[in-house]
């Protein structure tokens, strides 16, 4: 299977790759969930992963920060390079990997701690702050960048779990940002949210893409079109097509991609 790759709009961007997946195969026991997936992720861009349910988007996303390690019967074969370094090489520091590659989950999962402690969690375990005032500053700037500061600045001691769903998801984004990752993986971050909250998260993704590399799994074509520069289309464990979001949505090369994005899939 050869992935169709449309040319990048700018030739200079082509040279830049932050994550490179090369012939990645993933198995759950005997079941093969990903087949020979090869893709280069560009820095400071949003890459959207789309495709029908069960095609392996989440599985692929979890390869990038080795969260598949936590799944008992899951086996990942193939090369994954982060800035050219093989993340499966023996002796590679997985914990360190996850500080560089943050993750926001489908369902908001704030810790049952205060809003402040949620955001301060990462800086604390990684000893990023010298003293309370520096930590305060990190918490504030993370909440600001996640667009949540104004809503919670007067109740930082309140429980993170008592916020609304959309606020919880922005809290989780703030919590991920606070670790200062270079890459943020988001697995359908809006699927549990209403349209207004979704709109806010999309604005946020749009903002964040200047500083971060974002890989976003989404079922919403509009969301992929609105927020991403590149889109990858998965189908039955294969990466069928990857290219500029504009190209994918206006002139998809693969008939299945076209069928999927125009809603004629299935």
């Amino acid at each position: 299977m050869v992935t169709i790759e449309t040319r990048d709009a700018s030739a200079s961007a082509r040279a830049e790759t932050i994550i490179s997946a090369q012939k990645v195969n993933v198995y759950y026991g005997d079941f093969q969930a990903l087949k020979e997936v090869s893709i280069d992720i560009r820095p400071r861009q949003v890459t959207a992963l789309i495709g029908p349910s069960g095609c392996g988007k989440s599985t692929f996303l979890r390869c990038l920060n080795r969260m598949n390690d936590l799944i008992l019967n899951c086996r990942v074969v193939g090369k994954l390079l982060l800035n050219g370094e093989d993340i499966h090489r023996p002796g590679f520091d997985v914990v360190d990997l996850r500080t560089h590659v943050g993750m926001v989950f489908q369902k908001p999962n704030p810790f049952p701690k205060s809003i402040y402690d949620n955001v301060a969690y990462g800086p604390r375990i990684h000893k990023m702050a010298n003293g309370r005032s520096e930590l305060d500053g990190m918490v504030e700037s993370s909440l600001r960048r996640a667009g949540l500061w104004d809503e919670v600045k007067d109740k930082l001691a309140g429980l993170g779990t008592e916020l609304s769903g959309g606020q919880q998801q922005r809290l989780c984004i703030a919590r991920a940002i606070a670790v200062e990752p270079k890459i943020i993986l988001m697995d359908e971050p809006c699927s549990a949210l209403d349209p207004v909250a979704t709109g806010r998260i999309e604005e946020l993704i749009f903002e964040l893409r200047r500083d971060y590399t974002i890989v976003l799994v989404t079922h919403s074509m509009q969301q992929a079109a609105r927020t991403s520069q590149r889109t990858a289309f998965f189908h039955l464990g294969e990466l069928l097509e990857v290219g500029d979001t504009n190209d994918i949505f206006t002139k998809p090369r693969h008939e299945r991609t076209e069928a999927y994005i125009t809603g004629r899939y299935g």
């Binding site: 936590l70 990997l97 500080t99 989950f105 999962n109 969690y121 375990i125 670790v179």
Partner: peptide, 15 residues
């Protein structure tokens, strides 16, 4: 304790 909290913590680079 739901697994989502474990994954959240591990995903932030906790041991």
């Amino acid at each position: 304790v739901p697994d989502s909290l474990r994954h959240g913590a591990i995903g932030l680079g906790s041991t």
